[in-house]
Amino acid sequence: MPDDSRSEGPPAPRSEKPDLDDALRELAEEDRRSPGEHPDPVALLDYLEGRLPDAEADRVEEHLARCPDCAQAVLDFAAFPNLEPPTEEHRLTPADVQSRWRELQARLEAERRPVWQRHQVLLPLAAGLFVAAVGLGAWAGALREKVERLEGPWGNAYPLGLRPESAERRGGGVQEVPAGVDRVVLYLSLVTEEREYPAYEVDVTEAGGRRVFAGVPVRRGPDGGFVLPLPVESLPSGETVLELYGVEAGRRTPLETYTVAVREGPE
């Protein structure tokens, strides 16, 4: 091996050379300190199942090489249901499984009972709810006017106001729309002050993870909220998750998430 320690260029080889694998581990340790933004768990599962577009899959794959936690989650998805608990404390005995099944069964059965049978305190609450409903009706009327001012007439549309998951009083819960309504107009409010983006989009997803709409453009109204008209027939029958993004130079920044279940009520 030539001794070129006096020449310029790369350093001279040393008699005791460092091990390449050890040096690679050091390099990887440095990379692990900045693995970038973690993909969300559903994206990791989509990656494993080959559901992501190529560019997104490449981004996730690069992240997995740098992030042991996300890589392990993907490996666990792949191994499921053959997963060992990390400690004995987490291991379920057959008796645990049985008692938890009974607990779950009771909750499922409770959901199936008519609402007035579920709790003993509902009667006093009913009076309060009646008062609240009157107030809500007035609020919905005002909201309808606001939406029409923003977006013009919507025909046979019904407005629903949603508060984001980050709000103290969050979400939309289960909301009824009168039978015969063609579309709902969702009014998405923001509780935190966000910077302005040139454009905004909303993704609509079933609670089970199935995407209903992706990248629906929405406009921001003068009072800071967003209006999203959707045909009633396009909404899933169960819980729906709406994710609001700010869009700039093709990059989407998640801003808020809203959850609502819309069901058809009487006319």
Binding site: D76, P81, L83, P85, P86, H90, L92, R100
Partner: peptide
């Protein structure tokens, strides 16, 4: 599936 789901969250 319950033991596996529990293990998944524990991990």
């Amino acid at each position: 599936y319950a033991p596996a789901v529990t293990s998944f969250f524990a991990r």
